[in-house]
Each structure stands twice: as C-alpha cells, then as structure tokens.
C-alpha cells in the first residue's frame, strides 16, 4: 500500500514539475489553481443508463428452448382425428370466402383464372382435407387426412385412424376436396415456407411434371 502511495505522490510531483518547466510564463501562476479544480459531474453517472441495464427484455423462444418444450415433436399418435375435425369445418368456410366459391368457378382459359390460382396459392392449407393421388413413393399413394402442419418441404396430416404422418411435397400430387369441386395441387410448386408464400409471386402457367 505504502509503495503505491509513494508512487502516486511521485507521479503527481513529476506532473507538477513537468508543467512548471513547460507551461508558458503567463500561465505559471495559474497551475496550482487549475489542478485543484473540481469537476462537479465527473463522478456522477446518469440515472438512465443504470435503469436500462436492469430492465429485462421479453424475447421469443429460441429454437433450442422450443425443442425442449416439445414444439417440433408431434408424436405419431398424439393428435386425434376428432380434435382436428373442427379445423376442417372452419377451413371450408374460409376457403369458400377467399375463392368466392358462391360465384361460378372461372374457366381455365379466361382472364379470371390467373387471379383464381393466385389466391389459391396464397391461401392457407392448415385444416384442409388432402389426399395423395400420385407419388414417386408408392406407399404414400392414397393416404388422406387433415393437414395440421405445413413446412417448407412437408405436410403433416392426421388420417382418420388417428395416425400423424409426414408427407414430402416435392414428389407428390395432392387432391383437395371442397364441397363443390376438387382441386389438384402439384406439391412441387408449393415448396415455399408458409409465411412467405403469401408474398411470393408465381407464374400463371408452369408445366407440371413428376
């Protein structure tokens, strides 16, 4: 401790000596005064900074935390068909409102057709009744059920015998059952994240091939 104090004193004396040697003659008398000056606000910190640091921010769950809570693992027999049936009911209302099914469905050659496909592409498929009509993988053909999850490359569907299965979109052709009509969807064109699909533009005619 004492050695440190000695060092500090020495340093202070050195500074004073340096100033005495180097400051212009007109300023020499002011040195003592200037060194004893007190800066009033030097040791005070603003209150705002302290407060901001102590505030906790509510963040969204990270992926790891979500996984811990079981957000990604939907068990094979975890969802009952009865539970998702109301979704299908609401979905039918929704899709008929969006596509305006009360009016007649436009002709594929007419101008309104492009608008129709665009809105269908932007609509939501959660809760729709999907049936696989064609697929590269033969075991997936004829699987049907209500879609509960829609990711970039897969659909998760709950079939009538309460089994949840994952179906890759790319190699399948789906059929959707509306009350009036049936719609065939090429899964290859739906390989977009569900949230991004509503802003993305598609071409009117793409030649589908499996």
């Amino acid at each position: 401790m004492s050695s440190e104090e000695n060092f500090k004193k020495g340093a202070a004396e050195a500074i004073v000596g340096f100033l005495n040697a180097n400051v212009a003659k007109s300023g020499l008398s002011n040195i003592d005064k200037e060194l004893k000056k007190d800066f009033v606000l030097a040791k005070k910190r603003s209150k705002d900074q302290k407060r901001r640091a102590s505030k906790k921010k509510v963040r969204c769950l990270t992926r790891a935390e979500k996984k811990e809570l079981g957000f990604y693992a939907i068990p094979r027999k975890g969802v009952q068909y009865k539970e998702v049936l109301p979704l299908n009911k609401i979905w039918l209302q929704y899709i008929s409102e969006v596509l305006e099914l009360d009016n007649s469905i436009p002709d594929p050659t007419s101008k309104a057709w492009e608008n129709f496909t665009q809105t269908l592409y932007r609509a939501d498929f959660h809760g729709s009744f999907l049936k696989v009509t064609r697929s590269k993988c033969p075991s997936l053909v004829d699987k049907s059920g209500i879609c509960i999850m829609d990711t970039r490359n897969t659909f998760k569907i709950v079939s009538e015998n309460n089994i949840t299965s994952t179906i890759p979109k790319r190699d399948c052709v789906f059929q959707m059952d509306l009350n009036k009509c049936k719609i065939t969807l090429f899964g290859k064109l739906l390989c977009v994240r569900p949230a991004e699909r509503s802003t993305k533009k598609i071409k009117g005619h793409i030649h589908p091939d499996l």
Binding site: F71, V84, L87, I90, R122, A123, S198
Partner: peptide, 27 residues
C-alpha cells in the same frame, strides 16, 4: 387475402388451444 389468412389462423389457433397448445402456438 393476408388479412383473411391471419383471421383464419387466429380462429384455428383458438379452436385447438384446449386440446393441443403446441399446435396453437405454431399457428
């Protein structure tokens, strides 16, 4: 169409909340 979609997703999120909160959170 996006407003309609938000409305629909909100509805199904509310519908399924008592049976499967994980799916509700997903929607």
């Amino acid at each position: 169409d996006s407003f309609q979609r938000i409305n629909y997703l909100y509805q199904i999120s509310k519908e399924i909340a008592d049976k499967n909160p994980v799916l509700s959170a997903y929607y």
